[in-house]
Write a protein that binds this DNA or RNA. Structure first.
Lengths: 360, 360
DNA sequence: TTTTAGCACTCAAACAGTCAGAGTGCTAAA
DNA sequence: TTTAGCACTCTGACTGTTTGAGTGCTAAAA
């Protein structure tokens, strides 16, 4: 066992890099003989073998059994990501696809992230993920109502974070257009800006007094609001291209597939990870560096998406441990910056003191 | 080969039923000896063997190899579903879960179907699917706008089919509240009720004249409308519990899993099937009765969901061919009727001649 | 001192052979 | 018409063998 502090020699680095590069490509253990074809490594297989043995002692490589080639260990991948891999150069086609996102410049964040996720999965052939963060507390900033018929209307709610939620309300009795208008006014007046706990009995009684038919009307409205806004909303998780993973032999085991599908189904683990970073860098979690157990054989690369200084989400890619780190890091980087630049802070949360101005 | 027209003897029916019941339970070929434990079949294994051989000749059973037990053929399942299986009795727990859906009585169809899908997958342990049909032509019945800031507002569109779509619009210049109000009025006046092809140049020019700042304002608005309403919308497909399927040995083959995930990913095949039935009955597609090739080893049970006479969607379950038909048919039946009854026609599409009344 | 050729060694994967067990079809007796 | 019994078939589990890829080590070459 050699001293860990020893810097790796250039030759060792070259060999390690070559091993990881080919393993990422082919997915199989790499043997000493195979490496002789690289012109950067002009030595016999025997020499390479010695180096490989040392690299294994140092913890950068692993062997499945005595007579198999080597595969990179997590430490190996880590070193590769930190120091070895070369900058990926995006193709024109890739740049073109990525820049298409600009078309959605004026659209909602949901839509942007959704498209971005699809794009990432398409360009990388892994699974694209994105998280839209939920604000700490959901409050409705503004109410509006759309009259349909005497017993039907649509309640439109704009949350403080700039989301729009709608909810159809059906009543057992008739309501006039005027009443509806009055209702919107009172809602904006009394409970806009309050979080759900703020809607106390006195508030409700007050509203009931101020709206015609209030005794019958207010209660169903409030519960509609509760249902819609109060939905457990820890942030929306999106993903695309889960079945891309099935093309990699790493996921040919049915249990692995079950694990991954479960991960995407339950969502909470991923959400936890993705929302737990506000830094201005691209995170690379290799295998078990991630605390989520079912991801121990996968890697996750993601980066926060910001609007100004505010983290409003994250976008990333999940794939096998032997992922094309160079390419994925570059793409995630570019994509995240791209989206962030699309979201000038004035745009998305630009609700200007709407409450004060509202009342007639 | 016996005459197919011959009615099956009672004994044959009992044996066939027993075979299918146990195969559905255990998932393995059923042998003659195993069947002797049923008290309804009080014969020796030799007798049963003879009957089984005949049932195979008649096409109801199949054998994987000479010395294996029998499994039901598609014809066998068909006969079972049509004549043999007994009525499933829902448990109290199941009924309770199903009836919980009533809480959403006043909610949108999306929400109802989404919950219903989850419920179906949960109760059956297969995959629940639902389709919300798209109307023949998407038109916006009503516009509304919510002012956020001088350069930001939210456009709320109510489609003719009762859906609400929202779209944030960000402008490069300031717009006043009054202008926005005027804009809504003009939109409702000029293009509400029109389908997208109806928005011709003259119409747009007219609108530009009638709104302050119209030359700059109308164009981005129209393209926002196009983008939002014109999205390819063949009906929304939802599903839940895809990974339930992984628990069945039928799907332990990675290619099968890939096929199924692809089916849910592409959506169009399923959408095609689910939207192609307006009957008042529960459809049972066994294996290759379904034209979708990747579903040849699965079964699909679904039923249209109606609002009055109008078919507005469908709900169903996908599972392995040896599905618990009795249970699933009963649940799908109940669920579909339940939802249909929640949607009195007056409720969901109850927009009453809104266009005429609108103008000031 | 470093590199390399060569050789013995190890292990997985593919293949063939054997065996037990489950289930069958058929025949002859009940 | 039913059934006991037997010969037969096929799968799956297990074993042993072979092949080939790749290794570590040693001794010679550079």
């Amino acid at each position: 066992m050699q001293d860990k502090n020893t810097e790796l020699s250039e030759r060792k680095k070259a060999i390690l890099k070559a091993i990881i590069d080919t393993h990422i490509n082919l997915g199989e253990p790499v043997g000493s003989k195979y490496l002789t074809q690289y012109k950067q490594i002009a030595f016999s297989s025997a020499t390479i073998r010695n180096e490989m043995a040392e690299l294994e002692d140092m913890g950068y490589l692993e062997q499945l059994h005595t007579s198999s080639g080597r595969i990179p260990s997590e430490l190996g991948y880590r070193f590769y990501v930190d120091q070895l891999m070369q900058q990926y150069r995006m193709t024109q086609a890739e740049l073109g696809e990525l820049n298409k996102l600009q078309t959605l410049k004026a659209a909602e964040l949901d839509r942007i992230l959704d498209r971005a996720t699809k794009l990432m999965s398409m360009l990388t052939n892994y699974t694209g993920v994105a998280l839209k963060r939920a604000p700490a507390r959901q409050t409705v900033a503004r109410f509006d109502a759309m009259y349909l018929s005497p017993r039907n209307f649509i309640l439109v709610m704009l949350t403080a974070s700039g989301n729009v939620k709608t909810r159809q309300v059906r009543l057992g009795f008739d309501v006039s257009r005027d009443t509806l208008e009055r209702l919107t006014m009172v809602l904006n007046d009394c409970i806009a800006g309050l979080d759900l706990d703020g809607i106390t009995l006195p508030v409700m009684l007050d509203m009931q007094r101020r709206v015609p038919d209030g005794e019958r009307l207010i209660n169903p409205i409030i519960s509609a609001i509760y249902e819609t806004v109060g939905e457990v909303d820890d942030g929306e998780l999106m993903f695309d291209g889960v079945n891309n993973l099935l093309n990699y032999p790493e996921y040919s085991d049915i249990d692995r597939v079950r694990d991954m599908l479960g991960l995407f189904d339950r969502q909470d683990d991923l959400r936890e990870v993705l929302s737990h970073d506000a830094s201005d860098q691209t995170n690379v979690y290799i295998g078990s560096e991630n605390s989520v157990e079912v991801m121990n054989n996968s890697s996750l690369i993601f980066r926060a998406v910001k609007s100004g200084d505010k983290v409003i989400g994250a976008i990333g890619v999940i794939g096998p441990r032997r992922m094309d780190y160079s390419k994925v890091v570059t793409l995630v980087d570019y994509m995240s910056k791209n989206i962030s630049s699309m979201l000038e802070p004035s745009g998305l949360l630009g609700i200007e003191h709407c409450q004060d101005e509202e009342d007639s």
